[in-house]
Computed example of a mutant assay.
Amino acid sequence: MAKTGTGQPVSGRRADAERNIAAILDAGTRLISADPTVSVADIAKAAGVGRVTLYGHFPSREALVDAVLDHAVNVADIMLADEFIETAPAPEAMARLLRSSWEVLDRHRRLFLAADRTLPTERIRQHHDRPLQRVRRLIERGRRDGDFRADLPLSWLVTTFFSILHSAAQECEAGRLEPEEAESVLIKTMLSLLTVPAEFPQP
């Protein structure tokens, strides 16, 4: 087995690096979700690594926030897997998806605010591509079943879902929307947008 200059097997060094990265991502998710201005030094300390080690994996705060956001979104996507969302009537499934999405987003609200301040908007959207495929499939199904409107572009409706969730987080952080009201507001807003307008026939 190949060894490093210190005599440590390469595989062992790789395992150490993977453990350090996992610890940094976990600590970053926890600390940035509590305080979006937390220092890199504090994250390194919470992860049990030195700043040099952290910067060896994530060379800038932007790179660290980017990786932490990706980690949080991947965990959220796993949590959003729900057979009810895949099989229930589209309006009920959309309400469930919004509740679950808001539960995750509210828990990590300040992490997403930190990402808004640090990363380009398009980069944040790219991180959400996989979860938003779940939204796309649901809206497509609702349109096929006649439950959701088909006179607006599908991509626009998916973008609106993404946008109102993040706007709700910003409104709650600014004190203009009570967190306990956000879930109901989100469901009413999105379903009112998706409902087939009575005065317009479907294409």
Rank of each mutant, 00 (worst) to 15 (best):
G48V: 12
R176S: 13
P36G: 06
N74K: 08
E62H: 08
L132W: 05
N74I: 05
M94F: 08
K188Y: 08
A90L: 10
A34Q: 14
R141D: 11
I139N: 00
E62S: 08
E86Y: 15
V68F: 02
V135I: 14
A2K: 09
R14E: 14
Q202I: 01
F58E: 00
E86R: 06
R176Y: 05
R96I: 15
G175S: 11
E92D: 15
A44Q: 08
A198D: 13
I21K: 12
L165N: 09
F161C: 06
I32C: 04
A114C: 14
L186Q: 06
R19N: 14
R134E: 09
V49A: 04
R107M: 15
R143Q: 02
A17V: 06
V158G: 02
A72N: 07
A22H: 12
G175M: 04
A72C: 06
S11F: 13
L69I: 04
S184F: 14
E183C: 11
A76P: 07
R107V: 09
R130H: 12
L98P: 03
S163I: 05
S101C: 10
E92R: 05
F161I: 10
T87S: 09
V75Q: 07
T53S: 13
S163V: 03
G5R: 01
R176K: 10
D66M: 01
L54Q: 01
E173T: 08
A174W: 02
W156G: 00
F161T: 08
R110N: 10
A34C: 08
I78L: 13
P203A: 11
G5C: 01
P59Y: 01
L157D: 03
P203F: 02
L97M: 15
Q133G: 12
Q8I: 13
V68P: 01
Q133R: 12
W156N: 00
E181W: 06
A174P: 02
D26Y: 06
G175N: 09
R96W: 15
H128I: 05
R141I: 05
T87R: 11
F84W: 10
V52D: 14
L154Y: 07
E62Y: 07
V185H: 06
R136I: 09
S163G: 13
A95V: 14
V68A: 02
S163E: 06
M94T: 10
F148N: 02
E92S: 12
A95M: 14
Q202R: 00
F148T: 00
P120V: 04
S60K: 00
T195V: 10
H166R: 12
G28W: 02
H127P: 04
D129G: 08
A44Y: 04
A114H: 05
L80W: 12
A47L: 06
T29R: 08
H108S: 12
L193I: 03
N20Y: 03
N20C: 00
L105A: 15
G5H: 05
K45P: 10
E173H: 15
D42A: 15
L165K: 02
V185R: 11
H71C: 10
